[in-house]
Write a protein that binds this DNA or RNA. Structure first.
Length: 106
DNA sequence: ACCCTGACTTATT
DNA sequence: CAATAAGCCAGGG
């Protein structure tokens, strides 16, 4: 296992941890901030690898459409939604977020 | 080494 | 607005 690969994860963690409360960032956005412009998928995989007791605000990361990239039937989906709402992020009736308003660094 | 899959994105039809 | 295709990175069989 190379150090560089661990650095990628570390970068992603740092970027996700840098997302201000009340805002959301897309996977591509996070990847770009981490220096991995086209590794949006890697971000998703990295978050999936996170332990459930992580202190990382992974719930502030959504897909490019401002929608949670998880099945609505999954418990993690509700957790993410509740966490975001608790921070002031509003969801549309369709379950989408207005990135124009809550997107990170508009 | 090869092929498939995945918490993705963007452009096109 | 919805469905499709192609592109990209890393992991697992």
């Amino acid at each position: 296992m190379s150090v560089d690969e661990l650095n990628n994860q570390e970068k992603i963690w740092q970027v996700v941890a840098s997302i201000p409360a009340g805002c959301v960032a897309s996977y591509g956005q996070v990847a770009a901030m981490a220096g991995l412009a086209r590794a949006a998928r890697l971000v998703g995989r990295t978050l999936k690898n996170l332990p459930k007791d992580t202190n990382l605000p992974w719930y502030r990361v959504v897909n490019g459409q401002g929608e949670i990239s998880l099945p609505k039937a999954s418990p993690v989906y509700y957790i993410q939604k509740q966490q975001l709402e608790a921070e002031g992020v509003a969801f549309n009736p369709n379950g989408k977020i207005n990135l124009k308003k809550f997107g990170w660094q508009p």
